[in-house]
């Protein structure tokens, strides 16, 4: 992969939010159903944004295992995403939906992060920032994949095609896995950002593939396009991941020192 190894959190967030929103809008508003896969690509970049935030916050050691924070992200994300889309429908401006959902998720994420730090006293300096990013990523992943499956930004379409059919369940859990799994699988003293991030792309691509297969029941051709694009992205990024894993495995061992006396 030709990725720059030291990508800052700001760059990843900017890419995740911009590509995520643009993908959702093109897929939902362009009127060309075959472009639905662009929302899935947006979701992949949002997955990467969430995975990078998980990477920063979990390197502090949160004590509960990495999966908990991914579940928290999607718990906050699902409520915000559906509220955003419903709000856009209630005021008859569907365009507002994803932005309202995102803004709400960022606000809830910041408040929950503040609660975790100030009330529960986790005292992790990046907690507020990372939970804000993770909630934003959760809402973009859920909105992106839902829009991709339904091929529309209208809340009634999404409620009928995604929620009532039950496709929301695989989208929910695969979206959460894409955010929590990359760091959970790669963590350790020799964890490198580019390897974790490539893994995030490939997890996001799996979510896109499965959502595309779900979508075949609703929009057969658009769904098939999304599934094939997801499969291709998965193949390319997973090859990249294997390459980086081999690179890091060949780098020798990393000394971590002895355990501190209190931990024995």
């Amino acid at each position: 992969m030709s990725e720059v190894s030291a990508e800052t959190a700001n760059q990843i967030d900017a890419k995740g939010i911009v590509i995520g929103l643009v993908g959702i809008y093109i897929a939902g508003m362009s009127g060309i159903p075959y472009l639905a896969f662009l929302a899935g690509i947006g979701a992949i970049f949002a997955t990467k944004m969430g995975a990078n935030a998980v990477r920063s916050v979990c390197s502090y050691g949160i004590g509960t295992g990495v999966p908990s924070i991914g579940m928290l992200a999607l718990g906050m994300g699902i409520i915000s995403a559906m509220f955003g889309l419903a709000f856009g429908w209630m005021v008859d401006i569907p365009f507002l939906g994803p932005i309202v959902g995102l803004a709400l998720a960022l606000a809830i994420g910041f408040i929950v992060g503040t609660l975790a730090n100030k009330v529960i006293k986790l005292n992790i300096p990046v907690m507020e920032r990372c939970l804000t990013e993770i909630a934003g990523a959760g809402v973009l992943v859920l909105t992106g994949l839902s829009v991709m499956v339904a091929g529309s930004l209208e809340f009634p379409d999404i409620a009928r095609d995604v929620v009532s059919t039950g496709y929301i369940a695989p989208i929910f859990i695969l979206g959460a896995l894409g955010i929590l799994h990359p760091f959970n699988a790669s963590l350790g003293p020799d964890e490198t950002q580019d390897r974790t991030m490539v893994h995030a792309y490939s997890c996001g691509a799996i979510a896109m593939l499965i959502a595309g297969i779900c979508s075949i029941a609703i929009n057969p051709i658009a769904g098939a396009i999304s599934a094939v694009v997801g499969l291709v992205i998965w193949y390319v990024t997973f090859r990249g991941f294997v390459k980086l894993a081999k690179r890091d495995a060949g780098a020798g061992w990393v000394g971590t020192g002895l355990l501190p006396p209190g931990a024995m």
Partner: peptide
């Protein structure tokens, strides 16, 4: 699906 969302937030905190 919302009950699951509220449940997860209140289980993780």
């Amino acid at each position: 699906i919302f009950a699951i969302g509220v449940f997860l937030v209140n289980a993780v905190l």
